[in-house]
Design a protein around this nucleic acid. Structure first.
Length: 453
RNA sequence: UCCGGAGUAGCUCAGCGGCAGAGCGGGUGGCUGUUAACCAUUAGGUCGUAGGUUCGAUCCCUACCUCCGGAGCCA
């Protein structure tokens, strides 16, 4: 039976028999033996295999080049070398698949741009192996965080006919032939359909029945965004709580972010150490800081005052009623507070219709969580639960109440205060790994003009 | 989509109005309980594409394509 490299490397004692499979990272030949370094993805490190000349199967050694897949049987023994505690003294080696001269991954470093072109092979590199192990762990931690707090995981539709959730351009879903002038009524769903940009509205309905729910799945935006922080297909976590206000929402967001970071520090220590060494030297320090310290919370109004008084010259104007720009958000979180910041109570004009209007009549109970290096990682709000206020807001935003009859029904039948937020999973991963481009924290990125693989 | 930068060997890059370069990777030979080993040797190029200027363009100019960074939109 195959032993993962991770298990072999963490062994407490020698083993008389061990079977390891993996891909060759590097081979160092001597006259009487060869060193093979095998990595099987179970952890960052590979295991060193010593193959003496004459070992059964060793005649295939010339073909066991970087990238080749190999199976090894032998003994796990203490290594004579300084770099590792354990190594395998092979008693049999088998070549599973050759890699040849055209194998694109070298033993030396590659640029991230080049690796994106070989997205099917890049997880075999140290960096991407680490990124995708952390991605898996962070997905797991999303579920443990919410499940342990009594949230139910709900599955909202990926195909939706709500054509205006206020979150951006949507991808059309249709079975009509390209260029067809046929009416939407004749299409598959009998009306225009799209890929979802958010499960929030559906999540609200579930929260108003199950109490505390969360979604965790793919979402789609057809925006022509060409930045390191946007993808056309990305994963979003959207918790929604009934009987909850904005303050409780902020508490949850802060607790979740801290949980994710703490979990990564605890369970992905080796991979994080790698990022810290090769990607972002201040990563560990920043993560520990975030895990321990309370987040700053300031109102939009206070934020504008701070920015106006900063003496810093911004490219875009700072003025009450205008959206905070990236440079403003970065100044707040990176320069002024130097920690995550939650900005809340935004002017209603710059926020979507579903956010709850505050008593001041000018702001809504919205919040954005800003983190250093990424900017906005979470956006959320308390939802408008008062029917007449919701109607007014929809009219103000030019939305047809008929299209949202079921959403309005929630306010008609046993309405409750409720709140929730959306967290971009890839942005979380960028924050946790220090990787600066969203294309490098998702296995196969979908961005404008790119759907290869 | 807008602004800026960059496209030269498989990869990472240097170069220059006048014979196309290095390191790494690949091949070959050697050496060593090695550590992204080391030493020697060798192959490898339509200098992004198309025009233009020039005696001569990889180099200067224009357009286009692609990638990167920043911005907008947002998560």
């Amino acid at each position: 039976m195959r032993t993962p490299v991770l298990t072999a490397l963490s062994s407490q004692a020698p083993m008389d028999e061990i079977n390891v499979c993996g891909w060759v990272r590097t081979k160092r030949d001597a006259k009487a033996f060869s060193f093979l370094e095998l990595n099987d993805g179970s952890c960052l490190r590979g295991i060193q295999v010593v193959v003496d000349t004459g070992t059964p199967g060793s005649e295939a050694l010339p073909e066991m080049t970087t990238g080749a897949s190999v199976e090894v049987k032998g003994r796990l023994v203490a290594s004579q070398g300084k770099e590792q505690a354990w190594e395998i003294q092979a008693t049999w080696v088998g070549l599973l698949g050759t890699a040849g001269e055209t194998y694109p991954l070298q033993k030396k470093g590659h640029s991230l741009e080049f690796l994106r072109e070989i997205a099917h092979l890049r997880p075999r590199s140290n960096l991407f192996g680490a990124v995708f192990r952390v991605r898996s762990r962070m997905a797991y931690a999303v579920h443990t965080f919410f499940q342990e707090r009594g949230f139910f995981n709900i599955h909202t539709p990926m195909i939706t006919a709500s054509d205006c959730e206020g979150a951006g351009e949507m991808f059309r879903v249709t079975t009509l032939p390209p260029g067809s002038a046929a009416k939407p009524e004749t299409d598959f769903f009998g009306k225009p359909a799209f890929l979802t940009v958010s499960g929030q509205l559906e999540a609200e309905t579930m929260a108003c029945a199950l109490g505390k729910v969360y979604t965790f799945g793919p979402t789609f935006r057809a925006e022509n965004s060409n930045t390191s922080r946007h993808a056309a297909e990305f994963w979003m976590i959207e918790p929604e709580q009934a009987f909850c206000d904005l303050s409780g929402n902020m508490d949850l967001a802060e607790a979740q972010l801290k949980h994710q970071v703490t979990d990564a520090l605890t369970h992905c220590a080796e991979d994080l150490a790698f990022f810290s060494k090769y990607v972002d030297r201040e990563l560990l320090e920043r993560l520990r800081f975030v895990a321990e310290r309370p987040f700053e919370r300031i109102s939009y109004t206070e934020a504008v005052k701070l920015l106006e008084a900063s003496g810093h010259s911004f490219e875009y104007p700072v003025k009450y009623g205008l959206n905070l720009q990236s440079e403003h958000e970065r100044w707040l979180t990176e320069k002024h507070f130097q920690c995550p910041v939650i900005v809340y109570n935004y002017p209603k004009e710059i926020k979507p219709f579903y956010m709850r209007q505050n008593d001041d009549g000018t702001t809504v109970a919205a919040m954005d969580v800003l983190v250093p290096g990424i900017g906005e990682i979470i956006g959320g709000s308390q939802r408008e639960e008062r029917p007449e206020r919701l109607s007014a807001a929809m009219a103000h935003h030019g939305l047809s109440e008929a299209d949202y009859w079921w959403y309005a029904d929630l306010r008609k039948f046993g309405t409750v205060p409720h709140a929730g937020y959306g967290m971009g999973f890839e942005r979380l991963l960028m924050f946790v790994t220090g990787v600066g481009n969203i294309r490098d924290v998702i296995p196969f990125a979908r961005t404008p003009g790119h759907a290869e693989f």
